[in-house]
Design a protein around this nucleic acid. Structure first.
Lengths: 194, 194
DNA sequence: CTCATTACGTAATGAGCGTTACGTATCTGG
DNA sequence: CCAGATACGTAACGCTCATTACGTAATGAG
């Protein structure tokens, strides 16, 4: 009942995600969002709630449509393959779109006034979730003899993600995919022998 | 001649640096700067110019008073010692102040509207300068036989800084100094044998 | 056809932003 | 002790921000 929507909600959300990806939470204004989505302000409010809610919905979409490479990688057979895939996924995603390089989850997580604290906490949680998944996977690898018994799964997970995050920063600074790939290869030299 | 200043310029600059460090360029308002420095707006303008100029001066001060560990590290004797010191310096700086964790040069570099593009470019340049210094040092190490002849100095420099940047992100997410130290130790396992 | 319901775009709201004009206060050189 | 110069705080400027009230348009149910 009632008048039907004249725009695709998922399409608009994806466009908004792109703006947040490039400019972060505070750096994005409703004028930017209207320009990117082609949807007027009140329609954005009625579809997504306020700016913070819209950002959180965009983060959700990012997690399920773009930044899910960690959750996919843990299905691989060996810990080394998992680590390799995570770094490869990071390189690929960080350089996939020339107009929004780096990682959505990191670009917005670092600086900002108190107004953006909620968004920042959501991004920190998202990051921590990925790390926990990776740690559990490496813990399993130790039980399976895939990693040495004295390996620290928690440190290895944090290490791999540190490299991934560092590459996200470098991607934002304009690093090419080839350069990031070389860095990832170098990073994997630190991987413990089974 | 004329009425003398009633505040210490360097002191005020350091206070402003602290705010930019925590909140980034866009996330910092003049209300924040006045509160932190104890200096009224017009006095900040007359002493430092506008917000962008003040930010650039703060970046200068950061580079000379805080983020100079790369430039110090390259004086050490071996490439491995240099890499170790860079990572140790990053850990130390990223966790030195509980109220402004992470790296000034990275917190502000990632997201933002077009208004902050100049500040972002300055930070990107600062990062690239550090990388160049590190690369040159590793290049020298190759000539001195300190690094294998087939080592890629450029990739090694980028790798070490990727880890440093990643740790800065993690520091912002609340990682302890001990945890970051463990990550740095893991990262150095990738270092080539002489 | 009527009506409740929902979405639409226009245009406005109050708050906060970066920036500065202005009058006053305090210094030094003559 | 006056004149020129500089710094001071108050208070305002124009602009943009996120948010929303409101009248209109479009739908489906009865």
């Amino acid at each position: 009942m009632g008048r039907p929507r004249t725009f695709e909600v998922e399409e608009a959300l994806d466009a908004a995600l792109g703006v947040f990806w490039r400019q972060g939470f505070e750096g994005t204004s409703y004028a930017d969002l209207v320009a990117a989505t082609g949807v007027e302000r009140p329609a954005l409010y009625s579809a997504f709630g306020n700016k913070e809610a819209l950002f959180l919905k965009a983060l959700d979409r990012y997690g399920s449509h773009y930044g899910n490479y960690v959750w996919e990688a843990v299905n691989l057979e060996t810990a080394r393959a998992v680590a390799t895939r995570v770094l490869k996924g990071a390189v690929e995603l960080n350089t996939r779109f020339a107009d929004r390089t780096g990682c959505f989850g990191i670009n917005g997580a670092l600086a900002g006034s108190d107004d953006s604290e909620a968004s920042r906490q959501a991004l920190i949680k998202w990051r921590a979730d990925g790390e926990a998944v990776l740690r559990d996977r490496f813990e399993r690898a130790k039980n399976e003899g895939d990693l040495p018994a004295d390996a620290d799964a928690s440190v290895l997970a944090a290490y791999i993600l540190a490299v991934a995050h560092g590459m996200a920063v470098q991607a934002k600074a304009g690093f090419s995919r080839e350069r990031l790939t070389a860095i990832a290869r170098q990073a994997l030299c630190a991987w413990p022998q089974a």
